[in-house]
């Protein structure tokens, strides 16, 4: 895979010889403006002074910008608590998810055993089903296990929803690692499990990173399940906190905007930075199989 892991776009030549016309650039500029518009808007709103929050002016930058909203978000709301909760949940989901997925994917990639194809299709099928359809029985199950209102409940739910995809992704990658490497190592006296640990895993760190990143983005941005499982406000993740702020539109619109900017900038930065690997991994594991 490392051979065809090229960036989708930058180095490839244009399809056509003719010089791009001005209208191509014009259309792309309009599209780009529409796509970044909400981000710029919340940036603008977050800088507005308190008495101008509801102005209907269309300018992006307000007249007298102020960082008062940011100060208030950081001091007057539970912003850090929300971030902390999200961090713990996301970190543990990625850790547990990747460990379980890597071992399972290796077995599915390297060994033939009865039920293997069924297992792969079963994993695929769980992806077709929305989490919401199973959320109610899962909720009761977690309630009986006393896991409602704890990190564990959400983490368990996230691990299960991300596992099928990460297993497929990693299996696709392991399939491309030449088997001869392991055979050579086993001739030299390495055990089967040792060749997984010492040879296949180190060779596939990029795909492990993609899998972890997938878990992180899923868990970090999730709202629907978290809202059901986490009920006490000291366990709120940041999407739940934002929803609270935005719900009371009349009073705290500026706070919502400031908090949004604070969580969005790092997420967008990570996404853009990692998008080449993420996208190539997506086509490799998810679509092409």
């Amino acid at each position: 895979m490392s051979g065809n892991q090229k960036d989708v776009g930058d180095d490839a030549p244009s399809l056509h010889h003719d010089r791009p016309n001005w209208w191509v650039h014009g259309l792309l500029t309009i599209a780009a403006m529409i796509s970044v518009f909400p981000l710029l808007r919340i940036l603008g709103v977050s800088l507005r002074p308190g008495d101008k929050i509801f102005s209907t002016e269309l300018e992006l930058l307000p007249e007298s910008p102020t960082i008062a909203n940011y100060v208030e978000v950081l001091t007057d709301t539970n912003f850090f608590l929300w971030l902390f909760n999200s961090l713990v949940i996301t970190g543990l989901t990625a850790l547990i998810g990747v460990c379980l997925a890597a071992t399972a994917a290796y077995a599915l990639s390297r060994y033939k055993f009865p039920g293997r194809a069924t297992m792969l299709i079963f994993l695929m099928a769980t992806q077709m089903m929305p989490a919401v359809v199973l959320l109610l029985p899962l909720y009761f199950m977690l309630q009986k296990m006393q896991l409602i209102n704890s990190y564990a409940g959400v983490i368990v739910a996230y691990c299960v929803t991300t596992l099928p995809f990460t297993i497929w992704l990693l299996k696709g990658y392991f399939d491309t690692v030449p088997r001869s490497l392991e055979e050579a190592a086993q001739v030299d006296g390495l055990t089967e499990i040792g060749s997984f640990w010492r040879i296949v895993l180190p060779l596939s760190t990029p795909s492990l990173a993609i899998a972890a990143l997938f878990c992180v983005t899923q868990a970090w941005n999730e709202y629907i399940v978290a809202r059901v499982v986490l009920q006490s406000s000291e366990l709120y993740t940041w999407p739940m906190g934002l929803f609270e702020l935005q719900g009371e539109f009349d009073t705290r619109w500026g706070l919502f905007a400031a908090a949004s900017v604070l969580v969005t900038i790092p997420v967008v930065a990570v996404f853009l930075y990692s998008s080449k690997w993420l996208l190539s991994g997506l086509t490799l594991g998810g679509v092409k199989g």
């Binding site: 776009g9 056509h16 650039h25 780009a32 796509s35 808007r41 709202y223 969005t264 997420v267 996404f271």
Partner: peptide, 29 residues
Amino acid sequence: LARVVRGRGIYRTLLVIPWAMPQVVAVLA
């Protein structure tokens, strides 16, 4: 995008922002 050479990277970066933004923020905004 396939027709332009100069500036393709910038256009692409700006155009994937809706996907990169956390959905909760984008929708609430």
